[in-house]
Design a protein around this nucleic acid. Sequence first.
RNA 1: GUCCCUAUCGUCUAGUCCGGCCUAGGACAUCGCCCUUUCAAGGCGGUAACGCGGGUUCGAAUCCCGCUGGGGACGCCA
Length: 474
Amino acid sequence: MNQQVTVRFAPSPTGHLHIGGARTALFNWLFARHNNGVFILRIEDTDRSRSTEEYISHIMEGMSWLNLEWDEGPFRQTERFDIYRDYVNTLLNQGKAYRCYCQPEELERKRQIAISLGQPIKYDGKCRDINMPSSSIPAAVRFKMPKEGLTIVNDLIKGQVIFDNSQLEDLVIMRSDGTPTYNFVVVADDIYMKITHIIRGDDHLNNTPKQIHIYEAFDCLPPQFAHLPMILGHDKSRLSKRHGATSVLAYRDMGYLPEALVNYLVRLGWSHGDQEIFTRNELIELFSLQNIGKSAAVFNPEKLLWLNSQYIMDSDDEKLAEMSLPFLIKKGLITQRQKVDINWLAKAVCLLKERSKTLDELASSLGYFVLDSIKIDPKAAEKFLKVEGLRYISELREALHELATFSTAEIEKVFSAIAERNNVKLGSIAQPARVALTGGTSSPGIFELIEVIGRERTLKRLDEVVSRGIITKH
RNA sequence: GUCCCUAUCGUCUAGUCCGGCCUAGGACAUCGCCCUUUCAAGGCGGUAACGCGGGUUCGAAUCCCGCUGGGGACGCCA
């Protein structure tokens, strides 16, 4: 039996695609690609009250942004309710499931009593053997779990895990309103879609023995299971909103590159020796379930930020320039309609990219390239735009004005000449110039900077500073 | 409470299966130095870990048992 590897990512649309979900999706995707298999997207929306269309599109948008393209789907479970109902009836007819007339309040009361007595919290099986005839009273349907014996899960990551069947309860597979529940539809769909490997968070490990019995009820062989360790927050609790941005799209909006997030996520739990940075193709080639660790990992934003800076440094200038456009607009540094010369912007990006950890940061620095007039940091002006500095700037202005070839090399010569003439260090001229041109005290190399800003804008900014300096003196 | 998973630097991890090559390697962060017109980037170096207790063995991070810590699950949620 040489079945094609088929995996699925099955989020429930009750929230955004978060970091943990994205990693589950990523590992499924990698496993599929590595094995030339099929990656299915399935929306688990059986809980109609909590599922929304908006979340469905957010999830798909997040996956698309990360370039985790799915081969089939999205399938929605709400579209398949009739099929599930037939399945439930089959089990009912075979005596593998039964109607339960217990009321939620009653069950809740029993649960509370069990907790207070320190007893296992488990359905007592009240309706299991009383064989109620079907009636018009709404009833939930429960699956008959074996009462004794062991269920063994051979997990591809965790190894052999043994469960005592006495721990298993008769779970509800169909609510009294006729809608099916998670543990049942997962199995039904995984059978129907011929899923060969279930790769999911290890919070589902305890569901696995229950699901195995449902497979058996349908006379089906369960697929292979691989339970991924969880991602934790800095305080080692489950990653949540409290830990900052957990939505994948929030990272996009903060200026992260999808490749960087993917690279970060894959190293959370998976490793290949000492290698930290992987191309997409390397990941596909090298990925294996065997190299996934067993223990939970703490999400570390600093390392993600570092990876992002690495990816930015390695990115093509023009591509980065294009990508920074939305950030420039968002920051109000350019207008929606403004035409920006991408080739020119790319030159600025080239100077900035090894100093920017995010696209957002890059766009901020791009400000002093694209803006007509800049704001000058008062502290910087205080320090560098005093009499001396302004005098050098005037000299610089004249020399740059006269300069025949406006190139980095020639600009450097201008600076050297002024420094020599005044018998001061290069920094004495470079810092005032930097403040005048960028508004602050840190920037790329001053010569390259001037070349890219261009003669016209450079002269204008130097003039502004000089005239302002004279005014403040009075 | 019951069940399940898990345990190497602050964090991600290599090493664990098949004990000696581990005076435990890499990366992020951090500290110092170098480079330098600023800020970065880069280079070099430092601090920093096998949770604890018992075994087994000539020898244990690695195998076994217990403890402790952490996480998860126990819904007519998924």
